[in-house]
Design a protein around this nucleic acid. Structure first.
Lengths: 181, 181
DNA sequence: CTTAGTGTACCGTCTGGACGGTCAAGTCAA
DNA sequence: TTGACTTGACCGTCCAGACGGTACACTAAG
């Protein structure tokens, strides 16, 4: 019952994200995470031998789950032009109105050491490549990609500033650009 | 020779940003900042009575200098339609190819306590309002704003992923949308 | 001119607390 | 019994902030 998918492991990763969101990414302590996850500090360190290991896992789990979700959505769409772009937009919107909390664990990782985000950079680059390959207007694809990243980034940083109306206005415009009903 | 514009004060604020960039936003210690700024710890605490005060000042100084810069640029343009949008885009581009380092101090503040970014949120909201008021296509203004925020955000997070060619491609597209030669 | 007084800028040490990580011991299912 | 899993006490380090200084400029009374 161990390995990448252990129940406790998952609890710990979630707890880390919550603590980061509530206390600030820089105030993420192993003790706090352990308590939140209902585990002792020793127990936490059994699963993640160091804080570094924990934060790496946080980032990795984010990238992986995002990729899986996107792949499923892309498959369902069966790729015409701008299919990838549309899938990305769709995933973003759905995540957003599921009121899913921002992946604050990323900030905790960044806070400790900016290099921890390297996998995310790699992931983003790959995503952008795939979107541009099938794009009808590559420059516009860039703009759409950036706009979505903008919303995700602002949300992550707690700098969300748009009203709900503006949000749907923006999304509708993006959908129109990408060519989705 | 004191007040908001003291030489030492400025050195300290810059040092804080540099330390944050190099050691990670969460590893910003007063001692390190003091050393970097060529001041003792006591000296630092004379200017900023607490770490909180220092971080607040970092954020404040960022917002203020950005606003000043934008105002100057807006004035030079004398507002037609989309003038604000154009000014913002122009300021962003110039900042970018001045190779100006990202304002990492913001991350240090966020890292300590997300609420510290409240002034930035307020600033962003005001900016968006002013841009939408003079926008020829409000929805498109939203998209342009988001795209720029996207680039700024990714840059801040160290998640920049675009090549120089892609950068100019994106900027050119945005300029075309805003209607600038 | 001198001497005492005042305020600004800065220095360096100390302490209490928080935190990352270790470890010996314990639990319990297979 | 073995081995995966968990515990909580403990250690060393780092750091924010307090504090008691120093140095210098300026002012003003004697």
């Amino acid at each position: 019952m161990s390995g990448r998918r252990s129940k406790t492991r998952q609890k710990i990763l979630e707890a880390a994200a919550e603590i980061s969101r509530e206390s600030g990414p820089g105030n993420l302590s192993l003790e706090a995470v352990a308590a939140r996850a209902g585990v002792s500090k020793g127990g936490l360190l059994y699963h993640f031998p160091s804080k570094t290991a924990l934060l790496k896992a946080v980032v990795e789990s984010f990238v992986i789950s995002f990729d899986e979700e996107l792949a499923r959505r892309k498959e369902a769409k069966a790729g015409g032009a701008d299919a990838m772009l549309a899938a990305y937009l769709e995933l973003f919107v759905e995540d957003h109105d599921c009121r899913r909390p921002p992946p604050s664990g990323l900030l905790a990782a960044l806070s400790q050491d900016p290099d921890f985000l390297a996998p995310v950079r790699k992931h983003n680059r790959a995503l952008l490549d795939r979107m541009r390959q099938t794009a009808s207007d590559p420059a516009m694809a860039l703009v759409v990609y950036l706009a979505i990243q903008g919303m995700r980034g602002m949300n992550l940083l707690g700098l969300d500033v748009m009203s709900d109306e503006e949000f749907t206005e923006a999304v509708d415009k993006l959908k129109a650009i990408v060519g989705v009903a």
